[in-house]
């Protein structure tokens, strides 16, 4: 297998180079758009370790409808970026995304942000760890209905919406979210069925919606730099908030302060409980309650 791998890669590179060569002239000055589609069928995969690196553009991630391990389609400017599709069957490591052609100068975001696009569909029933690094642009991540064990989403200057429309097929260990100067919205985090949530925000507006089908107790650490943080909880969830903030307005409606923490009224009787540690510098923290 290894001896064939080299030849295979060389062959693919040759074909891709031949195909790409048609429009590569003056690629540095003019934009030459290409669409690459990569997918794999499921065989006997036990787990998947997915890493998606997407510099700029519009990105969507959703569960796959067909029996595929993954399906990735990307429209990109050939003069600026190179598509990346790497998979190691032995280790289950899957790497998808784009790399800048000019590593020194980086990616000229304005040129590709508006027209670049990538759509990723992932297998529902293969347990996976997903690391998603997103630079600038818009991201729509619907990760409900997957078998997510660990999730880490890092965004830069972007507008990101992370949703769990349906319940995760397995209980997740952790969901970690990092946002730079961004608008970040996570909806239905309860459906993630995670034991631990973490959010680190820089500057911007953040909404963390913990709605969904809760079936366990969990903790959440929320660290916010400068900006507005809105936390949404379902009414039947027991919520405890420990706040450490500086120059931050806190609207704790529906919560009762006891000791150094804020408790929901159903804390003692709730079937599932969530403890949230909030650390915020400048801005505001608002609490909303979701009626089912």
């Amino acid at each position: 297998m290894p001896d064939r791998g080299l030849g295979r890669r060389a062959l693919l590179a040759l074909v891709l180079a031949t195909g790409a060569g048609c429009g590569s002239a003056d690629a540095s000055d003019a934009q030459s758009w290409r669409t690459v589609s990569s997918s794999r069928q499921k065989w006997d995969e036990k787990a998947l370790d997915v890493k998606v690196e997407y510099g700029a553009g519009r990105l969507t991630v959703a569960p796959a409808d067909r029996p595929l391990l993954y399906q990735f389609q990307m429209r990109y400017d050939e003069g600026q970026v190179v598509p990346v599709t790497e998979y190691d069957r032995e280790t289950g490591k899957l790497r998808l995304g784009m790399e800048s052609r000019d590593r020194e100068r980086g990616l000229r975001v304005n040129r590709v942000r508006n027209e670049s696009r990538a759509d990723l569909h992932l297998a529902r029933d293969v347990p996976m760890d997903l690391r998603l690094e997103f630079g600038a642009g818009q991201a729509e991540l619907d990760l409900g209905g997957l078998s997510m064990r660990r999730l880490r989403v890092s965004t830069g200057a972007s507008e990101t919406r992370l949703t769990f429309r349906s319940a995760n097929l397995v209980q997740a260990e952790s969901v970690r979210m990092e946002a730079g100067a961004a608008r970040f919205e996570a909806v239905g985090l309860g459906n993630a069925r995670a034991e631990r949530f973490e959010f680190q925000g820089g500057v911007g507006e953040t909404v963390l919606d913990f709605g969904g089908a809760w079936d366990r107790n969990a903790t959440a650490k929320v660290s916010m730099g400068i900006g507005a943080l809105r936390l949404r909880f379902p009414r039947d969830l027991g919520v405890r908030i420990v706040k450490d903030s500086f120059l931050t307005r806190f609207d704790g409606s529906g919560l009762v302060k006891r000791g150094g923490a804020y408790y929901s009224r159903n804390w003692e009787s709730a079937p599932n409980r969530l403890t949230v540690e909030v650390d915020a510098a400048l801005g505001s923290i608002d609490i909303d309650w979701i009626d089912r």
Partner: peptide, 25 residues
């Protein structure tokens, strides 16, 4: 794996307003 191009390089036919300097990530 499928690869499809979109014809020749896209060169703006009409002059456009100058764009702001590109951000570098």
């Amino acid at each position: 794996l499928t690869l499809a191009g979109e014809g020749a390089a896209v060169i703006p036919t009409a002059p456009r307003a100058p764009k702001p300097p590109p951000q570098v990530v």
